[in-house]
Design a protein around this nucleic acid. Structure first.
Length: 209
DNA sequence: CATGTCAATGCGATTT
DNA sequence: AAATCGCATTGACATG
């Protein structure tokens, strides 16, 4: 159950040309467009929730402590709240939202990275396809080999995808008894591929949200 | 006025 | 049971 914010929260509202947080904000924050006003001072807060805007100073301070630690223990929360003249709940909410924002930023970057990766894979696929066609065109007479399973002649250079292990198996003609060599080409997972695919676009993923 | 930002709310899950 | 979290969402306000 939530407490009615209009009646209990120590809110501040952005108002040009006014400041109300003398503890940390005493040094004139004159450059900013927004100043803050305690909403508690607004007579009859009413049921509609008013928009709080933290001061630059408050945000800066919260950001600073967020850099040190992304979560708060109750003591830190209390201390921050006192220092910034906010309710502990407000500090808590700020940290929650801040974590969410960081995560959003992170997933956006991941998304961009995957897009680039997809692009380069598409390009690579296109190149390999072309190369394959050229190699096939160059081929003079199709040397045959016998399938180990069916004993039916197979064309040379057959690429097949094993549905179970998702590996590409290259069937190549060999002297003596027929042989299939498995070229390790596991598909999918970017995490594993990133170490193997040299054309992977560089990744500027920052974990510092 | 459409859109973006961000503090705040509500709720379910988890932890202590 | 209370505290805390993540997540989705809301609503006030700013901005182009």
């Amino acid at each position: 159950m939530e407490v009615c914010p209009a009646s209990s929260l120590e809110l501040t509202i952005s108002v040009p040309g006014f400041s109300s947080s003398p503890s940390l904000l005493s040094s004139g924050e004159g450059s900013g467009l927004m100043r803050d006003l305690d909403i508690n001072q607004v007579p009859n807060g009413g049921p509609s929730r008013k928009k709080l805007r933290l001061t630059k100073e408050q945000s800066r301070f919260l950001e600073k402590s967020f850099k040190q630690n992304h979560t708060l223990n109750p003591k830190e929360k209390e201390a921050l709240a006192i220092q910034l003249r906010l309710k502990p709940r407000q500090v808590e909410v700020w940290f929650q939202n801040r974590r969410a924002r960081g995560k959003l930023k992170h997933t956006e970057m991941e998304c961009q990275y995957l897009k680039r990766w997809y692009g380069s894979l598409t390009e690579q696929s296109r190149r390999l396809q072309k190369e394959l066609e050229e190699l096939r065109a160059m081929k003079v007479g199709p040397p045959t080999m016998i399938s180990p399973h069916s004993r039916v002649p197979l064309p040379a250079s057959t690429l097949t995808m094993c549905p179970r292990c998702e590996r590409v198996t290259t069937t190549i003609p060999d002297k003596g008894p027929s042989k299939t060599t498995t070229t390790t080409t596991p598909a999918t997972n970017p995490a594993t591929l990133s170490a193997k695919v040299p054309i992977l676009p560089s990744r500027h993923t920052s974990t510092t949200y």
